[in-house]
Simulated assay, not measured.
Amino acid sequence: MRATKDVHARRVLAAKLQLTSLALNCTTHKEICARFSAANALTAFTPQNAYKWFAGKALPRVSRVYSDWSAVLGGHLTPSFIAASSFNEFAEALSRSHALPRETVGRLSPDSLPVRAPDTADVSGEPSAPRADHPSAWRADHVLPGRYLAISPAWSPLEMGRLVVGHVQIDALDGHRSKFTYREDLFGRAFVLSGEMIADTRYAQAILHADFARRAWVLNLHLPPFPASLLTGLLSGSAVLDFDGRLLTGRFLLMRDYSDGAIGAIPAYAAPDPVLIDEWLGLLGYREGKERLSFAKNAVDFVLNFRDGILIDVPPEDQRALGLALDKLAPHTGRQDALQETGRYSSTAKIKSLLP
């Protein structure tokens, strides 16, 4: 019985440390050890001990570790509370000072973190870096899942200079895979793009397919630190309403929804008004104040006014002009073969009539 309690205590400690690392945006043992060293130069939170504690192999032998832990978290939690609290109590208290998505807390519960054997030490005697599947390793699926409000520059020529507003849902699948679903409410119906998203330690990428057209869109996102309130990247494809048929790439900004979906549906096109975005941020659960309005202004500037222009596009007329110029330089035999393969011309005479 005592051995079982000891194992559970070590699991709880490992889970608390994992949650602390994510709250502090620490992705390695070295980074979190540096935080403890800054609080106390003589801390027992050394790389060797951190490795054992994160792996669920041991418990701290000195109580001073919990005082250092309290200082690292800004003094919001007492050393005795950090040491004696359950994981759920610790997570609830930590969430008051750090934004912790509910899905993440659930995945980091002690029961979900297997206690593994130590990794093989290197020739220097130091433990090697944790494997990607190790409970102390930072993984994208810890931070990405959740709901987001997305804004991007309008692609339609009729709405140029305005914002497109959409809703995003990211659901963890397994490993580093997630399902990404993007929805715009446009002209009385929902337009949905969805696909599988993969991630490493720096980027998340997805090929999104539409429910209304035989097209695909490519999404590339920077992978943010915990708690991932903001995701940014590029969305490439073609506009649903674009009679010119351009290929386009635009900036894509996602703001995490902390309101459990209370914001509801928003029409797809909106004015680039910081006050409007500030109101949305309030509905999403962000604290009111000058900083929130300042963020709203910066978000509009990020999406619409970056130095390379609002959009990167490839107009068909540009391709036609370049293509025609190069076609005129192609050898006659090659041009004849290309025309014959199209099946649009039934005789050599018709082919020759097209050649200069």
Rank of each mutant, 00 (worst) to 15 (best):
T120K: 11
H134I: 02
S136Q: 13
A99S: 14
W138V: 00
S112V: 00
E92L: 09
S136E: 14
A84S: 12
R107F: 08
R107K: 03
A129H: 08
A91I: 07
S112K: 12
P110H: 13
P114K: 03
S80L: 07
R96A: 12
P118E: 14
A129G: 04
V123W: 11
S128T: 11
V123E: 15
N88C: 02
L108Y: 10
P135C: 05
V123S: 15
P130S: 01
S128Q: 14
S86C: 03
L100F: 08
A91V: 04
S124N: 14
R116N: 07
S128D: 15
S97W: 14
S136F: 05
E89Y: 08
G125E: 14
A83I: 00
D111A: 13
R116D: 10
E126G: 05
A132G: 07
S80G: 06
A117C: 03
L94G: 10
S124K: 01
D119G: 15
A84Y: 03
L100N: 08
P135Q: 06
I82G: 02
E89M: 07
A117F: 05
F87T: 02
D122G: 11
G106K: 06
V105F: 01
G125T: 07
A83R: 12
S95N: 14
E92K: 07
W138D: 09
P118W: 10
F81K: 03
P127L: 10
H98N: 06
A93E: 15
A99F: 12
P130W: 15
P118C: 05
A129P: 10
S124H: 03
F81V: 13
E126H: 08
D111Q: 12
L94P: 14
S109E: 15
S80R: 10
G106C: 01
A121T: 15
A93K: 15
D111M: 01
A129R: 00
A83N: 02
I82A: 06
E92Q: 14
P118N: 12
S95R: 12
P114I: 06
V105M: 10
A93V: 02
A99Y: 02
R116H: 11
A132N: 06
S124Q: 03
H134W: 08
R96G: 07
P79L: 04
G125A: 01
F87M: 04
D122M: 00
R116M: 14
S80A: 12
E89I: 00
L100I: 15
R131C: 06
D111L: 06
L113T: 06
I82V: 04
V105Q: 09
W138Q: 09
A84M: 12
N88G: 08
S85W: 10
